[in-house]
Design a protein around this nucleic acid. Structure first.
Lengths: 348, 348
DNA sequence: CTGTTAGCGCATTCAT
DNA sequence: ATGAATGCGCTAACAG
């Protein structure tokens, strides 16, 4: 791996000149520029970003932490963040936290050591407090939280309008005549899960019904736990709800599995609506009514906000809290029919 | 962001001593170590990897290039590679090439500038030659190719036994009595697509049939093109095959869409088998018979091989070509029944 | 055991 | 327009 020095020698100029033609900021005569470019090609020279960063104190790199890239929602967000970053000359390095606060701590520390200029963070769902975040921000590394927002921490954030989105899904079930609607959430340690639960309650109460706590089910974000919780609540037909609303894709898939395990199917036995799309709904049956998040926009906006913060410097401007509307895609799991309607969530 | 110097000052020791307690290689007295540790905590000090890397010429980082993380196969591979890397003290930074050779060139150059110690590469499918790869290897950066292997280039590789896997899928259709079996491949510029096609032909010929070129369909890796190709071949019932084999998840989904657009369904009108799983097959209908790749193992092995190469130094040992067996999951799209059988691909 | 020092490769003054 | 010199933060070799 050749260095700027070798390029300079081969071109017969000083390293300063080489640096100038690479940087482009300082003018260089055409003859020298040509020689330098030739030498660069001859040596297959690739500037050492490490050294450059050490000098300039800029890495042009964003860190991104997600719980688990194999959950389909996240690759979409990462990719759009990458696109936005790229448009501003930034790269993004994405890492998994395994949805563990301990591991999240490790990767944040790693990202810090790598001197990323900002961090896009989807927090882990464990109980650990998110004290790292203010530390990061204090120390000059802007953070934008996506999707899942931490408690009581001043930080820029981008997510869907959780409450309104959930309310939209549940209202849809109510409008279909359902009165006994259960909700299956992920860990309520996550604020967005609580928000979605709030939206559910609001919809129920607006319909003049009372919230029945025995219809509020909480599960961890893994298939086993979700299925177990479902089976526990679905075995007895007396207590069974007529409809089920799931607050995310993981609980959504798990619930369908749990229902299948109980010999129940949707929409025949239980009407079903979930956050997030589970599959190619145009092909597979039952097609599932979904509250769809604007995943692409969430990632894109988050990266843009982050880069703006970076470029604005450590200004203590007001925190940005972008809330994007979700879309309700009505399919047969709720209606029983194969009609597909689309409702846009209102921006409020 | 504090530096080692500040830590040293606060602790009242030299920067050498701080470096020693961090590195752990050189013994330090307990009293000093405690002081240093306290200073580190007090300052919330995070060692600058940039500076460290510049000095040690090691980044402990692997680069990984995939065409598109939103294709479900890739996040699995990335995650397992990350797991393997982490076990050896490495991080991985994954980037998308958008399946474009031009963009791939850019990101490889970027990765090189970032001085990653090795690269896991899933090549783009365009026509561009992969001359970058030998350059990378020559210059001391080991490369392991996954999934898609470049032409005529000496490089370590890990992928599924493409030919055998395809043959297994097609043989399954033959065993069901199908005689007019079409194959829908991705770009045949990709060797693995050609290998899968070879497996198809082998199965057909072993059954004593002749390969009919009009049943070999090729499409680009995007929904529009795949659907168009399908519709073109499926509209006339006279030329319609009784079964369709798709060589990857993208053409698989696209084909199902194309079939739906022609008013055809599987398994009733056309038996269907595809590489890769398309959805949660235990829940949605039709469940699709799939040739399943060991995604986790592919990523894991690839990372292990790469790290071994890195640690072995620029030895010119023999190239490793790991070929992993696929699994055939028989479901209703081929059999019409809801039985599920599982056949393991033989390791040969 | 502890401290001192010389670069790692590069961008950037500051001269010329 | 070009070049020489400085130092970013750190590790490793060495001296004490």
């Amino acid at each position: 791996m050749s260095t700027i020095k070798e390029v300079a020698e081969l071109a017969g100029v000083s390293i300063g000149t080489v640096s100038h033609v690479i940087g482009g900021s300082v003018p260089v005569s055409d003859s020298l520029r040509r020689k330098v470019l030739a030498a660069i090609r001859a040596l297959d020279y690739h500037p050492n970003h490490i050294a450059r960063s050490l000098k300039t104190r800029k890495t042009r790199t964003l860190g991104m932490v997600v719980p688990d890239m194999t959950i389909p929602f996240f690759p979409q967000v990462i990719r759009s963040a990458e696109t936005a970053a790229h448009a501003h000359g930034y790269s993004v390095i994405a890492v998994n936290s395994d949805d563990s606060t301990a591991r999240q701590k490790e990767v944040l520390s790693l990202l810090r050591s790598q001197r990323v200029e900002g961090i896009l963070l989807v927090i882990a769902s464990g109980h650990g407090s998110q004290t790292q975040v203010p530390k990061l921000i204090e120390s000059g590394i802007p953070v934008v939280c996506l999707d899942r927002l931490p408690e009581g921490i001043e930080v820029d954030s981008v997510c869907v309008e959780d409450g309104a989105a959930a309310e939209m899904g549940v209202s849809h079930l109510l409008s279909l005549g359902h009165r006994k609607i259960a909700i299956l959430t992920g860990p309520l340690t996550l604020r967005n899960e609580r928000e979605r639960l709030r939206g559910y309650k609001q919809a129920i109460e607006r319909a003049g019904l009372a919230v029945n706590d025995s219809l509020v089910w909480e599960a961890k974000l893994n298939q086993e736990d979700v299925s177990a919780v479902c089976r526990e609540h679905l075995t007895h037909s007396s207590t069974r709800p007529s409809a089920l609303f799931c607050t995310n894709g993981v609980t959504g898939i798990g619930a369908l599995r749990g229902m299948a395990a109980c010999g129940l199917s949707t929409p025949e036995d239980i009407a079903f609506v979930t956050f997030d799309e589970l599959t190619a709904e145009d092909i597979f049956r039952p097609s599932i009514t979904s509250v769809v998040q604007p995943a692409y926009e969430i990632g894109y906006r988050a990266a843009e906000i982050l880069i703006e913060r970076i470029q604005a410097g450590p200004t203590q401007g007001p925190r940005i809290a972008a809330r994007l509307p979700a879309t309700l895609k009505v399919r047969e799991s709720s209606t029983g029919a194969e009609v597909v309607k689309v409702l846009r969530g209102g921006r409020r």
